[in-house]
Nucleic acid binder design. Structure first.
Length: 526
DNA sequence: ATAGGGTTAG
């Protein structure tokens, strides 16, 4: 039932807004063609926006765009917005930039102030050079006084850690608002300068939920989990309502801290407030329950999600691996592949960790090969760490050394540390000495390594070396040693333990039980 | 008629 051909533009928009499926939209599109309404680019504009933003049908949107002989700047920006709204973010950066370059190349239509922010967002996925050239292009075209464009640039530079450039842009804005402030705050946080971020945040004349989220995420990204939870508390106290983004950030912080109680409180909050139980919140819940050791709940949350994103799978695999449920982690991985989800580099960190913890040497090597070969995922240092650990534990030192030699990245402390661990287990004195020396090169201030070297020499009876190392220990390094620390929450009270500290009132009992556990673990080894 | 800041997995 279509309206008569002479219906007005307002009627057209009204009918469009009631299209529930692509089939409806196509009918309206056909009708527009027949009635010659489609020759007006305004019509195409509306159809394109609706196809992309409401029906998430990018191919159809692009066909609408491509069927327009000389798209005007509105159609370009509608197409670029469609790409920007797609998920995952930056999935269509290349297409976005290709269209932007086409505009510049053809000289028509000239990009306006709405085009630059869209192009810049895509440029963030490519590199800072591109951001620079778009910056100069924008300035040459007279857009240097457009705050929105300058804020996009500010954000782009800050994503590459170039805070002085970002700051300069911020100071040059004609009017600073909550968006530009937030961009700067999260820039400092991403650059690891949380102190600056907090100071700026406190100076902000006006805040919204996104501004709070920027600070909370910034703390969490820098390992300040307690602060992240605290700021969330402060935010609620000041009358702001946490949304899905807030909830996932804080859940992640709770997971890292093992704060199951607070995690449950946030779970309850999200439930009561219907804070879009969108995938990010559920992913956060899986991660939080999993990291806190409540794998049953994590699996339950997982089973409750209907649209599982890659992150959903990665969260579960990682948690299972973390708690030594190696077979389950591998099983979930196969399930994931059966469902046609393409694993990424994070998936393989979890999977390889599972193989390492379970001692599945052949499986681990097979998955490493699958990742590197068939799937073409370039191994990162974390993956090499897993492989070194895997081979080292199995005593395959020649293979370990050949992996380390052929790595495309510089070995870090995790790599040499894993090798060292393996050497101690398999009593490989010479290689252990080599590993410790590498560790000391990377981090001369870590006194632990010097102590290990001394122990190693005395175990082997190399007394001259022992004397040399002991002398080194007495010099400057020892004061810099940071004691290891761990904590656990029991009945709303957090118990903290430093390495070698017996301050806890039940320290003696705890140590006795630890010794018993260690003894029974020894028994299980053989 | 269109644009900028805040997620989660290692």
């Amino acid at each position: 039932m279509l309206p008569p051909p002479q219906f007005s533009h307002a009627d057209f928009v009204a009918v469009l807004s009631r299209c529930a499926t692509l089939a409806h939209l196509k009918q309206l599109h056909a009708h527009s063609v027949v009635t010659a309404r489609a020759t007006a680019q305004t019509t195409t504009f509306h159809l394109l926006r609706f196809a992309s933003l409401r029906l998430s049908c990018l191919p159809y949107a692009r066909r609408l765009f491509d069927s327009t002989p000389h798209p005007n700047v509105f159609l370009y920006s509608a197409m670029l917005s469609a790409y920007a709204a797609a998920s995952p973010a930056h999935a269509y950066s290349r297409d976005t930039l290709a269209l932007f370059l086409r505009m510049l190349h053809r000289g028509r239509p000239a990009p306006n102030q709405f085009i630059y922010p869209l192009a810049l967002r895509a440029a963030c996925a490519v590199g800072v050079q591109l951001i620079r050239s778009i910056h100069s292009h924008a300035c040459k075209s007279g857009f240097h006084a457009y705050d929105v464009i300058m804020t996009s640039l500010l954000d782009g530079y800050s994503r590459y850690g170039m805070m002085p450039d970002a700051r300069k842009l911020f100071d040059g804005l004609t009017e600073r608002n909550v968006v530009s402030w937030t961009a700067l705050v999260s820039g400092y946080a991403r650059a690891g300068k949380v102190g600056n971020a907090i100071v700026l945040f406190d100076q902000m004349p006006e805040r919204d939920v996104a501004a709070w989220n920027a600070l909370i995420a910034g703390c969490a990204q820098n390992g300040l989990f307690v602060e992240a939870v605290g700021i969330c508390n402060r935010m609620v106290g000041e009358g702001f309502r946490p949304n899905g983004t807030t909830v996932s950030c804080v859940l992640s912080a709770c997971g890292h801290l093992g704060m199951l109680k607070i995690g449950k409180v946030i779970h309850g909050y999200a439930w009561r407030n219907c804070v879009g139980f969108g995938s990010s919140v559920v992913n956060g819940l899986i991660d939080m329950y999993g990291k806190c050791g409540n794998l049953k709940e994590a699996r339950w949350m997982f089973s409750e999600v209907s649209d599982r994103s890659l992150t959903t799978w990665n969260s579960l695999i990682n948690c299972l691996a973390l708690h030594g449920h190696s077979e389950s982690a591998i099983a979930v991985f196969s399930e994931m592949r059966d469902e046609g989800i393409e694993p990424d580099e994070v998936t393989f960190v979890g999977l390889l960790n599972a193989c390492t913890h379970g001692g599945f040497v052949n499986e681990g090597l097979m998955y490493f090969e699958l990742m590197n070969g068939e799937l073409g995922i370039e191994p990162e240092i974390e993956h090499y760490g897993c492989i070194v650990d895997l081979l080292g534990r199995a005593g395959r030192f020649e293979d370990v050394m050949s992996v380390i030699k052929n790595m495309k990245v510089q070995p870090d402390e995790v790599i040499w540390g894993s090798l060292l661990n393996a050497c101690r287990k398999h009593r490989q004195l010479e290689l252990a000495e080599f590993a410790i020396k590498k560790l000391l090169q990377l981090n001369p201030n870590n006194a632990n390594y010097v102590v290990m070297l001394a122990n190693l020499y005395s175990e082997g009876g190399f007394w001259e070396e022992v004397t040399k190392v002991r002398k080194l220990m007495q010099e400057d390094i020892m004061g810099k040693k940071l004691p290891g620390c761990s904590w656990i929450e029991v009945d709303r009270k957090t118990h903290t333990f430093y390495s070698g500290d017996d301050a806890h009132p039940e320290s003696e009992d705890i140590c006795n039980i630890l010794e018993e556990l260690a003894a029974s673990m020894e028994m299980c080894q053989d």
